[in-house]
Design a protein around this nucleic acid. Structure first.
Lengths: 112, 112
DNA sequence: GCCTTAGTTTGATAGAAATCAAAATAGACT
DNA sequence: AGTCTATTTTGATTTCTATCAAACTAAGGC
């Protein structure tokens, strides 16, 4: 019966909750996930992220991002792949994601 | 000597830290402060905000926003006035504040 | 000078969130 | 079938954060 590999807790665009999205992105680990995802040319597996936390902790952060609607996840074999929901976020909160990404990116770029 | 009424912990634009700003704005009470401040035609005293928390709790939230660089505060008699640092935020993180304000405002506007 | 108003400071408390470790699950490979 | 790899689940712990209450500070007005 239950295969347990379906992911069904991703909200639809109409149900996006801005405070929740804000909260999801505000955590440094999760912000790193978003940033690395935004910079990647392809979908990224959970294990491919460079994160300073235990895998089980990372899972919680991925869950927070997914349930807020920031990322989409799907299985590919034993790996769980991650995709930024750029279009959906832009539709719900125009300009927000872009400003966040550019704000984070700027730091490492302008050596000041 | 010490008058104790000077506010000296407001960061300069160059010292703005994006994760910190994000974190400051991510709290629902603080987001309400930012929203109400953005909508107000003039500077607003701490006591004029409509917040569901004790004044001493509000003080902590104002402090978090101020130290992150989101608001500027100054004394006017017994009142402490608040100002959104729109220009500074826009200089440091272009588009961020605007997208946040419009994202929050949209909710109450479009009755769906 | 005293009382009022506005807000802050200082504790103390409670609830939420992040963290890790260990065990469990599931597909891929041999 | 058995093993390896990738990730999740569960449980325990700890660290943060928000919160309120009470006492304190300072300016304004009488």
């Amino acid at each position: 019966m239950s295969r347990g590999r379906e992911i069904t807790d991703e909200p639809e665009v109409d149900d996006f909750d801005f405070p929740r999205v804000l909260n999801a992105v505000a955590d440094p680990i999760r912000l790193a996930i978003v940033t690395q995802l935004a910079a990647a040319p392809t979908d990224v597996s959970c294990g491919s992220f460079i994160l300073p936390v235990h895998p089980s902790t990372a899972t919680h952060h991925f869950t927070a991002l997914r349930q807020a609607g920031v990322i989409h996840q799907y299985y590919a074999g034993t790996s769980r792949m991650n995709v930024l929901r750029r279009d959906d976020l832009n539709e719900a909160f125009p300009g927000f994601l872009d400003s966040v990404i550019s704000a984070v990116t700027k730091v490492s770029t302008s050596a000041r």
